[in-house]
Design a protein around this nucleic acid. Sequence first.
DNA 1: CAAAATTAGATAGGACTCCTAATAAAAATC
DNA 2: GATTTTTATTAGGAGTCCTATCTAATTTTG
Lengths: 217, 217
Amino acid sequence: MTLFDAITTPLTRRLREGLDRIAAAMRADEWGVAEEAGLTPTQLHALTFIAGRGDAGLRLRAVAEHLGVTQPTATDSIAALARKGLVAKLPEAQDKRAVAIRVTPAGCDVVRAIGLAMTSAERALETLTPQEQQTLLALVIKTIRALQQAKAIPPQRLCVTCRHFRPYAHEDAELPHHCALVDAAFGGRHLRLDCPEHDAAPQPLLEEAWRAFERAP
Amino acid sequence: MTLFDAITTPLTRRLREGLDRIAAAMRADEWGVAEEAGLTPTQLHALTFIAGRGDAGLRLRAVAEHLGVTQPTATDSIAALARKGLVAKLPEAQDKRAVAIRVTPAGCDVVRAIGLAMTSAERALETLTPQEQQTLLALVIKTIRALQQAKAIPPQRLCVTCRHFRPYAHEDAELPHHCALVDAAFGGRHLRLDCPEHDAAPQPLLEEAWRAFERAP
DNA sequence: CAAAATTAGATAGGACTCCTAATAAAAATC
DNA sequence: GATTTTTATTAGGAGTCCTATCTAATTTTG
């Protein structure tokens, strides 16, 4: 126990505050990006989320959970997007209570246009070395997984929770992992946070893979 | 250039999205914490910021920049806090246009009560090993510094931009750094993001210290 | 020094966020 | 078949957050 252990706030507290500072910058960024498309940051988040999983049509509840807001708030935002013609709400055949929210062609255009924008957060992250970026990615993934396990956020489509993920299957230090779906090797810098092909691994398999991933060489 | 380099989105993009997911969890957290004090997340941020630098009294503009919002929005939030009796707006002697915003005793109580709350983000960060936490801290600091240099956020009171910071002044791998103000050694895990004693280093000195910090052993 | 430009903050107006509480309908459970 | 749960909407209200505009005080300039 050193002097500084006594006088500084806990490390996790400082980490949260630091992430908060970065988040503040990202939020300010988002106003700039969103406004070009005539949207608000919340609408932008909702729209990109819906576009990213557009195939099947999304439930309102899923959007609410992803945004981390209540259902009525999600109703508001989706209504705003629908008014602007960027998403459509179709009735679901199986469940007559539910709606299937899908992105419209106009919505797709907006998402594509926005996807190219480079935020100041990304520029800041580019100042890190490739090695540092990869390290940060691994730490972010671990944190997200912990949040997911604590049910603070809904399940994410992470490589590390996927049925097809084979951690450290190869000797190659550059590309140690393997994706059984595309049957190809990949590296830590390629790990995805939201893979369209994600297929949740069953619990026992998942835990085994996670342990293998954690005790990185 | 491997297969995965071609099919994954850029690493910085994924990093931003990952940080966004963590930020979403933190925002949801904040509603819980803030509501116990009868506040909103924005008011909570403003209040803790004001309390953290209460000595001199803050300008409205400083609050706006810290929150990453426009000045009228800050006026709104400060007015709400003033209505609740948690901050006070005093006229400034030197500049009759300006106000000095200070936290009241009641505001101090609220800040103290809130400071003890443990968010799910912090619990998630606790699942990282101490070494990982320290690594993450260093990466967060580098990112914040980059954001600061890009003027995406206002100057922060980081150890690494302080006049009293001596990076790697000691052989001890555990406590390599030195703070000339308290004249004591400290480690990477102690680096602060918002030190009350911060005194901005002049440009040339700052750059030299930063280079020394970056080429970590 | 006086006119012009800048700066600090407040105000007005409006869209949207975001909550809780209450409602309605469909689906699941017992 | 009668609850209970789930899905989504509506109503009401405080607050966020923007742009644009305004006033007053300070600083800069000619």
